[in-house]
């Protein structure tokens, strides 16, 4: 996975709280192989009307080139399905800006190069004011934890270790190779001091 420090793109507004993982990708699409792409399933039901037609007034439909979404609090709450992140990433989304994120969603996002940028109420209001009507060009600076939109500069927060991971495009399995010996030693110690922690032999 490629790391990134800055991103410039178009931001759209989805001013809804609790956009949960079941809305991000309904369960019925989750048996698809990743190689087939998940982008078409992003917010599948939310972006359609009762007849199944794409809603012209839905920001993602009107602006399919957008790469940044501003959303309400608790974005990505719910299930651990990483497919919710795949749907965003495969649809070209690089960052979601929101007052808060579901814990598992945020971790999954970072593991796929998607930035969960947390903003305070003031920051949210500033971005919303800029993008409420029309999509706007936005610049994201991961080093400075800064969003620039219109004439406004807004700070966001992200866990330091996550920012580092996004910037370097690190993969945890590669990183963990450096700790092989420590893991082996830990296992030996635990198997001696907590033998009960291994499943009992069964016939």
């Amino acid at each position: 996975m490629a790391g990134w420090h800055t991103h410039q793109g178009q931001a759209i507004c989805l001013p809804v709280a609790n956009v949960d993982t079941d809305q991000l990708i309904p369960a019925r699409f989750m048996s698809v192989s990743r190689a087939d792409g998940y982008g078409d399933y992003l917010l599948y039901d939310m972006r359609r009307d009762a007849t199944g037609a794409l809603r012209a007034d839905f920001p993602l439909n009107a602006h399919p080139g957008a790469s940044v979404i501003l959303a309400g609090r608790n974005f990505g709450s719910g299930s651990s399905r990483e497919a919710a992140v795949y749907a965003l990433v495969d649809a070209g989304i690089r960052a979601v800006i929101a007052p808060s994120f579901g814990d598992i969603f945020a971790a999954n996002a970072v593991n796929n190069g998607l930035l969960p940028a947390k903003v305070d109420d003031e920051g949210y209001a500033a971005v919303e004011a800029a993008v409420a009507k029309d999509p706007q060009s936005i610049t994201i600076d991961l080093d400075a934890r800064r969003l620039t939109i219109d004439a406004a500069t807004i700070h966001f927060t992200i866990d330091d270790s996550w920012a580092l991971k996004l910037k370097n495009g690190w993969d945890d399995i590669d990183l963990t190779r450096n700790y092989c010996e420590a893991i082996a030693a830990f296992k030996v110690n635990r198997s001696q001091t907590a033998t009960w922690a291994w499943p009992a032999e069964v016939e």
């Binding site: 598992i104 945890d172 893991i183």
Partner: peptide, 22 residues
């Protein structure tokens, strides 16, 4: 605790998981 697919792959491969203490 629940984990996503990338973390599941990591646990499969290493029997460990990276996590900041809540």
């Amino acid at each position: 605790f629940g984990i996503g697919a990338t973390e599941v792959a990591h646990v499969l491969a290493t029997q460990t998981v990276w996590q900041r203490k809540p």
